[in-house]
Every structure is written in structure tokens, then in C-alpha cells.
């Protein structure tokens, strides 16, 4: 069963010196280190199969860092991270796309990056193209695609990749209304199959609809962790959009 568990996880970024060489020397020799900036401070949470967790907070609160840690893209400075299951990060859809290659060629590379095997891709190719609604354009170069078409293609590859843990960063609302509705159905269906979802978004309605639980981060610390409805309302109440609540 897929599972994600963080225990007192801390991630520190140091002020970036422009002189990489000196920074590298100092760090490898273990000498004096520059002032630390805490991206995450003692963050603990646990989430099991078939559940979805929303991560909310202001820009720079540590939301993306948290997702990067789950994906294993960076390592924590202290604390323990347990991730059971294959993670797929939709941190930025379409990483690795190249404008001169056709949709089908990009689809292949992207699918391989998402962890599909040759056989799985052969089986799911048509399904991916159909879900993305790109059957007529799949052999055209990607530079002729609209932004919406590119996102649909990447999103379709990702949800067909069969990962156990999906990380969505501001990428839930893709495409037009019909496509969004279809995507939502698909995501809910994946949750029923026992997949885990971690969502970052600034659209409270989407998060409330998809997630059971939420974490509110502020400067790398957990402010509140509990039922999605409650946490999201508290966050929205504490950070009003136009200076006061209506």
C-alpha cells in the first residue's frame, strides 16, 4: 500500500554565493557556513492509500520544497522521510518537451520519463492521445500546439503513468471546462484505486473538492494540519484577499 510519512523534516537552503567555487570548497571542507534559511522546519505528517492532502500557504512558505522532498529531488537536512510507492511529480508539466519534435515523439520521451516501460507505452499510447483530445495533431511538431494542447498532452501522459503517488503543483486546472471536468473525474477515480495525491493550489474550491486533509505552511513551519475544509477556511480567513472579510 502506498504511503508517505514525514517525521520532523527540516530542509535548509543557504544564501547562494555567486562564487560557486568558494561555496563548494567551504561546503566540502565543512568549514564556516553561511546563514541558513529554513525552507521547512520540523515538518511531520502522514498520509495513506486513497487519500489526498492539500498544501497551502503563501509564496515561499515551503510548499514546492515539500513536494520536491517527496519526489526525492532534494535531500532533507534532518528528519526522516518514508515514501512507499512510485512517485510522479507534475511539478511542471511537460519538462523535457522539445518544440521541434512531434507530439507523438514528445509523448514517448515524456512517458519514459514518467516511468512507463516500452510495453506499457505501446498499450496505452492511443488512450493517452485520446484523453488529450489530440488525435488529429499528434504527428505535428509541438511548436504548432497551443499552450492548452501542450498541457493536455503532458497531463494525459502523467495520469496514464500508473504512479502510486501523484504530486500536483498548481496543475490541476488544465485545459477548458470540459477537459477539467474529465480530469477531475479521472483523479477521483485514481484515488478510489488507492493512489495518493498531494496538491498545491491557490484555488480553495479545487482543494476542498479533492482533498480530505490539509497542511497550512508559513515560513517552513506547519501552522495548522487537519481536515481540509477547516484548515483552508482558517487560511483564507487569516489571509484575506482584499484587506478584510466580506
Amino acid at each position: 500500500m502506498p504511503r508517505v510519512r514525514f517525521e520532523r523534516v527540516t530542509k535548509i537552503y543557504r544564501r547562494q554565493s555567486r562564487q560557486f567555487f568558494w561555496r563548494f570548497l567551504v561546503e566540502t571542507l565543512g568549514g564556516r557556513r553561511s546563514e541558513p534559511i529554513y525552507a521547512l522546519r520540523e515538518v511531520s505528517f502522514e498520509i495513506g492509500a486513497g487519500r489526498a492532502l492539500a498544501i497551502i500557504g503563501r509564496n515561499g512558505a515551503g510548499k514546492s520544497t515539500l513536494l520536491s522532498l517527496v519526489a526525492g529531488l532534494t535531500a532533507p537536512d534532518s528528519g526522516a522521510i518514508e515514501v512507499d510507492g512510485r512517485v510522479l511529480a507534475l511539478l511542471e508539466l511537460g519538462s523535457g518537451f522539445h518544440p521541434d519534435l512531434t507530439g507523438a515523439e514528445n509523448l514517448r520521451v515524456n512517458a519514459a520519463l514518467c516511468g512507463l516501460t516500452r510495453r506499457q507505452l505501446r498499450q496505452r499510447f492511443d488512450e493517452i492521445v485520446e484523453f488529450a483530445e489530440l488525435a488529429d495533431f499528434i504527428d505535428e511538431p509541438l511548436r504548432t500546439y497551443s499552450q492548452g494542447m501542450i498541457l493536455r498532452l503532458a497531463f494525459s501522459v502523467a495520469i496514464h503513468a500508473g504512479a502510486d503517488i501523484l504530486l500536483l503543483d498548481e496543475m490541476i486546472a488544465v485545459g477548458d471546462m470540459d477537459f477539467q471536468r474529465k480530469s477531475f473525474r479521472r483523479i477521483r477515480q485514481m484515488k478510489q484505486q488507492g493512489r495518493i495525491l498531494l496538491c498545491v493550489s491557490h484555488v480553495p474550491e479545487i482543494l476542498k473538492e479533492l482533498c480530505e486533509e490539509a497542511i497550512w505552511l508559513e515560513s517552513g513551519r506547519i501552522v495548522q494540519y487537519g481536515p481540509a475544509e477547516e484548515v483552508i477556511d482558517a487560511y483564507a480567513g487569516g489571509a484575506p484577499l482584499y484587506g478584510g472579510r466580506p
Binding site: D100, L101, R108
Partner: peptide, 25 residues
Amino acid sequence: MRPRNYGFLLACLVARDFKIRYRNM
């Protein structure tokens, strides 16, 4: 990361590099 067969990914990346280089010429 769970160990996995990366042959297909490697093949896709090689093909991508190869195709990009002279595409549109």
C-alpha cells in the same frame, strides 16, 4: 527510488537528442 529497468528511458533520450540535432534541416 525503486530499481527499475531504465533501458527504455535511455533509448528515448538518445533518440530525442539524435532527432533534435538535424530536425528542420
